[in-house]
């Protein structure tokens, strides 16, 4: 007879458990907060592998929100750790605090002596963002939402890297999109329900659910770029 452990568990799930337990022990014996935060990344890997080992479409659908949630979690915890360090150093908060300001290009921080003008830095982010948003709208659904959010984030980060502000109009538009989120949720749920109630009109309801999901995911992830601007 086969080994009962291998009989009951897929090797992927065993590897996932082994790594999860190892990294949790490592976190337990860790004193530095930031090291523990980095090790949390591995616990997340173990979680993803265990879910992937189930090997169904439902598992894939569970992985996607898990990834997004872990991203938000790590962002929040890292912010808390940084703020704690700032308070400990007994120095007043440096000016207005902005997300991802450390990645500003040397052309725009004033470190570079020469006045270089690069056309490609001004025009290409807009082009890329527009292409991504249009492509995401055509794709629809979760993937489309992720593509749209990538476009929005890319635009916001490119402005930050160049040391510019988001324009007031764009901010209002962004906030409006986030407000649409509730309606989008309603569209998605209704589309999904009617899909089972009236199977003959499946195309309409499929499009409704796809549109709802694309707005929802796009606005939610795009909010990361918007929050960076808030004071």
């Amino acid at each position: 007879m086969e080994n009962p452990v291998i009989y009951f568990y897929n090797p992927t799930i065993l590897v996932g458990f082994a790594i999860g337990i190892l990294s949790l022990f490592a976190i337990g014996s860790q004193k530095d907060d930031l090291h523990a935060l980095i090790l949390t990344d591995i616990v997340e890997c173990a979680m993803l592998v265990i879910i992937a080992g189930v090997d169904t479409d439902l598992a894939e659908a569970l992985i996607l929100p898990g990834l997004v949630v872990s991203l938000a979690e790590l962002l929040a915890v890292s912010e808390i750790l940084i703020n704690r360090k700032i308070i400990k150093s007994k120095k007043p908060k440096p000016k207005v605090y902005k997300l991802f300001e450390e990645f500003k290009l040397p052309i725009y921080t004033g470190d570079l002596k020469y006045n270089v003008h690069m056309e490609v830095l001004e025009t290409s982010p807009k082009f890329f963002a527009l292409v991504l948003i249009i492509y995401g709208a055509i794709l629809s659904g979760f993937t489309g939402g992720a593509v749209i959010a990538t476009g929005l984030l890319f635009y916001a980060l490119s402005l930050r890297v160049r040391g510019l502000e988001l324009s007031e109009e764009l901010k209002t538009l962004w906030e409006g999109m986030a407000g649409l989120s509730g309606i989008a949720w309603g569209l998605w749920i209704i589309g999904f329900l009617e899909f089972f109630l009236f199977p003959k009109k499946w195309l309409l309801f499929l499009l409704m659910a796809g549109l709802g999901l694309v707005l929802k995911v796009g606005s939610k992830l795009g909010l990361i770029g918007f929050i960076g601007e808030a004071k």
Partner: peptide, 26 residues
Amino acid sequence: EALALMTLIAVNAILCLILVRAIILN
């Protein structure tokens, strides 16, 4: 799991930015 793979790559890129930023500021 193609969709999960693509999302993992995208999320990991943003995650790397966040952690590097935390390390630098710390």
